[in-house]
């Protein structure tokens, strides 16, 4: 799946699978044996790994001595958890009122075209997951696009290619 890719612009190096698993193991160690800690662990595990595939669920199941079916039950109950891979970066186009009236929609259309995916999709190369957001609280910068935790202000369709090329 995700190979270790040296990223050009990220400040942190992409972690290897092993490092991610080790990190998750540490989290489990921290919470192990405490009642009701499964959700915390899953939350952190998703943050570290990006999503919660079956293999990772098995890992957590074994380490926490909780049946796999129970873990999968919790994951499938809460929509926050995802069992499918997400792109390395998440693009969120703001569709709040301000951004919408200033052209958010055309940005969405253009991004669909560039990325070749629908809203909610992940690009074939696994680089981007494309989502739309309600107001992100940056109305003064409308129309705004967020990629991971970076906000791009006053975006228009012509700027998109150059923004994306940074990733």
């Amino acid at each position: 799946m995700s190979k270790t890719v040296q990223s050009c612009c990220c400040s942190t190096k992409e972690k290897t699978q092993k490092e991610k698993y080790d990190e998750i193991a540490n989290v489990i160690e921290l919470y192990k044996g405490k009642d009701g800690s499964l959700i915390q662990v899953l939350h952190l595990a998703q943050e570290i790994y990006g999503y919660l595939p079956l293999e990772l669920q098995k890992f957590i199941s074994q380490r926490m001595s909780i049946p796999l079916s129970k873990i999968s039950g919790v994951i499938s109950f809460y929509s926050f958890f995802s069992t499918a891979p997400r792109g390395k970066h998440t693009i969120r186009v703001c569709m709040g009122t301000a951004c919408y009236v200033r052209g958010g929609k055309s940005i969405v259309e253009k991004l669909k075209e560039i990325l070749g995916v629908e809203i909610g999709g992940t690009t074939e190369d696994g680089k981007f997951t494309f989502e739309i957001a309600r107001c992100i609280g940056a109305c003064g910068l409308a129309p705004a696009v967020m990629i991971d935790d970076v906000v791009y202000k006053q975006v228009n369709v012509n700027k998109l290619e150059s923004i994306l090329s940074k990733y």
Partner: peptide, 25 residues
């Protein structure tokens, strides 16, 4: 399966209308 036998092969998956009592995933 969970409490008496301690196997835990099945549990509730998904939520609401889509809930099913199944193995993981």
């Amino acid at each position: 399966c969970n409490e008496i036998q301690g196997v835990g092969a099945i549990n509730a998956q998904n939520r609401g209308f889509k809930t099913s009592i199944s193995p993981a995933m």
